[in-house]
Amino acid sequence: MGPVPAFQPVFFTGAFPLNMQELVLKVRIQTPNLRENDFIEIELDRQELTYKELLRVSCRELGVNPEHVQKIRKLPNTMLRKDKDVARLQDFQELELVLTVSDKNLIFRVPTLSEQSGYNKKASELTY
């Protein structure tokens, strides 16, 4: 028998291991006229990687009506068209929703609190 290996402590680096059940994507709305156009991160279940599910989750998170999405672009210049395209996406890839209507007031819908991801009704009722 050789020497017993020394205990190696695990240091927390601030990075969490990726959940293998979810695909994390960065999504934003294409807005060439606005200065700030930050991405948000969305999660898709890897068992349901379809174009329809990507469109549904992206629109819900961004508060956009799916009927106003002309196309989904994988940056810098690739249009997503079908389920196989979505299945090839990798974690943290950047996507843009290209909208058909130019009047932004008709496109955006502010989701109610209960529709927003991460909303916890029980936590909102707590009193301190």
Rank of each mutant, 00 (worst) to 15 (best):
P76L: 07
K82R: 12
G118C: 06
V101D: 14
Q47L: 12
G118I: 07
D85Q: 05
R35P: 08
R81H: 13
F11D: 11
F108C: 00
K104V: 10
L49P: 01
E61I: 01
L55G: 07
F7G: 09
D83E: 04
K82I: 07
S102Q: 13
L54E: 03
Q93A: 00
K122V: 10
V57L: 06
V64H: 06
L89H: 03
F16C: 05
Q116S: 13
I72Y: 00
Q70C: 11
L99K: 03
S124L: 10
Q70Y: 15
M1Q: 12
D91E: 10
K122M: 12
Y128F: 15
E48T: 05
L106A: 08
L89N: 03
G63W: 07
S117T: 11
Y51F: 15
F16P: 00
L23Y: 00
N19Q: 06
E48D: 13
L99G: 02
T13G: 09
D45C: 08
E96C: 04
M79Q: 15
Y119S: 09
L106Y: 07
L62N: 03
T127W: 11
Q8E: 12
P5G: 06
V64K: 01
P17T: 04
L34T: 13
I72R: 02
Q8R: 15
H68T: 15
Q47T: 12
H68S: 13
I72T: 02
A15L: 13
V4D: 09
P111E: 02
E22N: 05
P3I: 13
N105I: 07
P3G: 10
F108N: 03
Q47I: 03
T31R: 09
N19R: 04
C59T: 08
E61N: 07
R35W: 12
Q47N: 14
M79D: 14
E41Y: 02
E43H: 04
P66G: 10
I42V: 06
D91K: 03
A87H: 08
P111A: 04
L34A: 15
G14P: 03
E43R: 02
R109I: 09
I29F: 00
V24D: 01
T50N: 02
Q116T: 12
T112Y: 13
D85L: 01
F11Q: 11
N120F: 09
L75G: 01
T112L: 11
N120P: 02
P17M: 00
N19W: 07
G118Q: 05
N65G: 05
K26Q: 00
S124Y: 09
R46G: 05
D45T: 03
Q30S: 14
E48G: 05
V57I: 15
F11R: 12
N77D: 15
C59H: 06
M79G: 07
L25A: 01
E61G: 02
V10G: 03
N37S: 15
V57H: 03
T100R: 14
R35E: 15
C59S: 07
S102K: 12
E115G: 05
E115H: 04
S58Y: 04
E115Q: 10
L99S: 04
L25T: 00
